[in-house]
Design a protein around this nucleic acid. Structure first.
Lengths: 349, 349
DNA sequence: TTTAGCACTTTAGTAGTTAGAGTGCTAATC
DNA sequence: GATTAGCACTCTAACTACTAAAGTGCTAAA
């Protein structure tokens, strides 16, 4: 373990490095953090911290930069999570209080707000479909040859799709479809319609396979569709000093472009808490020079989406984590309240 | 005007520069394009072309690079628009033949395909809402407190939105809404519901303003919503030699991030043809180092969306324009055919 | 245990040099 | 009159050498 002086010095080094992006010298530490030791003493401590793996040097006579182990210790032991100002809290409140009708919209607003306050690039995805339960499935005829299928889940997620036919669809057919699909799928998880179910539905229905098959295909398509990710503030990252190298910028743009990668990262985090991945802690080799901080927001055990920040390892973890915690808490409260009201009113019916 | 020899040399310079991204010397031209004049003669011609403003030099003793005037002449007079291979045609056909139910999906597929074939960054937006005519507006009750509004336009565009209420909505209310809004809005252009119309609707309806007002607000919101742009292959551009400079990369990422700018650019082009903007020809100062090529696709006079390519001024215009023309023609044919079938069958009813 | 002092290391920036690519111009040639 | 060989001239890009500044590690003294 590290003694108090080492902790204090390590924290100072990392704080300073996060601020300036320059290797930190013993002299700077003594001056800026008015330590009551000489630079020589600090140098000895820095050498020991380096020996233990918490710090690195860029070359033999340079100042120190944090290692990944250093950042990890910093995140786990040294930072406070109340690094958020009253103005920031008010700003978040004003943003999140906007009335929205769909969860995804709330997630987007939160994602944008997070980027605005932290000045980092943020990404988000909507809720995982698999954990959702189908509450209602509704067929709507638009004109005579366009059929819209709307699926509503228990946590209020709405998915819809359209099917175009070459022949007219009648209202009575729509009625049959409504009854059939509701009786079969209501209360079931929102997952792909498998072969047995497909065959069952086909056997139940009295009219053409030409009507049913496109519906099943299209439902499977929207359920299995690649989740769409929402990205905010890609350009903000480019202003940071680590993006002075062309290699890094290209790498970063490629990462943001690679949607599957971002989706995996957002999905991999544990629910219920903030996940921090520093450099090599990321699953993907491509992300080894970046840090990612994510959180899922949910009501009960229903996943409602995941929001993340991606930035350099030299990230202002304290600010990021503080702001995320606040946003997470606020979203949870709002959604829970709304949920409770709905439930109360359901009972009073 | 330019005589034939000058045209030939100009074309060779631009072709070569598009290929190599290096200033073109008189010697290279003679060797690679087996001109039947000596390099000295070519040098004289190059000097004259530079004098007329078609070419530039990067420094006094460098080879020539095309000026914007040069590119403009090249695009207008020198290139062929049949620079597309059989493989490419087949690939486009296979991609565009995928059955889609919504126009936007077709536009996205075309956008992706265009990027795949040209290796440039492509962007697209959906149809302009203002030119669309409302064909049907439908209210659907999801559960007891969620109302979905679906608007279908004459060219098959479907827009939908959801409104959550704190009180139950009845089927008979939905029926009234369907009748009222359809009688008032059907056949009208898909534009914002203005104050007089809003007041009229409110006066017509017998029940609470709390039900109607959110509907009108939400309809206006989706109609006026910032069009969403679809972007493909941002990373492809970064591999090009002009993106060796950090400045250029940042500038490019900022442009792609600035959605309003991209929307303006895509909207500004004339319908019915391919629009080429070279460097300073772009409205926006930010785009002065880039070229943009766009086309609108439409059926009749209905705008169905716009697709564009953004890349360096040293763009392979011939390939880009050839591929765009083919995609444009193919999309038009497909949509027209589909339209005609629908009309034929309407008549035979 | 702490610190003053100093030798040593490394970087980043500046200046100088050179080879090579390419032009423009002149004078000779077709 | 048009073309071209030849050459002086220009500019760049790459390499080398040098220097000042920043910072460390270590020794020896406090």
């Amino acid at each position: 373990m590290l003694d108090d002086r080492k902790k204090k010095i390590l924290q100072a080094v990392i704080d300073e490095y996060i601020n300036t992006a320059e290797p930190v010298s013993s002299g700077t530490l003594v001056k800026k953090y008015n330590l009551k030791y000489s630079s020589a003493t600090v140098r000895n401590e820095l050498a020991e911290l380096e020996g233990k793996g918490y710090l690195d040097k860029t070359h033999t006579s340079s100042g120190r930069v944090p290692s990944e182990k250093g950042y990890r210790f910093y995140v786990d032991e040294l930072i406070k999570d109340d690094n958020i100002s009253l103005e920031e809290i008010k700003y978040i409140q004003s943003k999140l209080n906007t009335k929205v009708n769909e969860i995804e919209d709330l997630t987007k607003i939160a994602t944008t707000t997070l980027s605005e306050i932290t000045h980092y690039t943020t990404v988000s995805i909507g809720p995982k479909t698999q954990t959702q339960i189908i509450q209602e499935i509704k067929f709507v005829l638009l004109g005579s040859r366009m059929l819209m299928v709307v699926i509503v889940t228990d946590s209020g997620l709405v998915k819809e799709t359209i099917i175009k036919y070459n022949e007219d669809i009648t209202e009575s057919q729509v009625e049959t479809l409504n009854n059939l699909f509701n009786s079969k799928l209501k209360g079931k998880p929102l997952s792909k319609i498998d072969k047995p179910m497909e065959e069952y539905i086909l056997s139940e229905i009295q009219y053409s396979i030409n009507v049913i098959k496109p519906i099943i295909d299209q439902i499977n398509k929207i359920i299995e569709a690649e989740e769409s990710i929402y990205l905010e503030g890609a350009n903000k990252s480019l202003e940071l000093p680590e993006f002075k190298s062309l290699e890094v910028v290209k790498n970063f743009v490629n990462i943001l472009d690679e949607k599957d990668l971002m989706i995996d990262v957002l999905n991999s985090g544990l629910a219920k808490d903030i996940n921090v991945y520093i450099g090599d802690e990321n699953e993907s080799e491509q992300l080894k020079d970046f840090s990612i901080v994510t959180f899922k927001h949910s009501v009960g055990n229903k996943d409602l989406g995941t929001i993340g920040i991606i930035g350099p390892k030299r990230m202002n973890y304290s600010k990021v984590i503080s702001v995320m915690k606040y946003i997470s808490k606020k979203m949870n409260m709002d959604l829970k309240m709304q949920n409770d009201i709905e439930k109360d009113e359901d009972k009073s019916d």
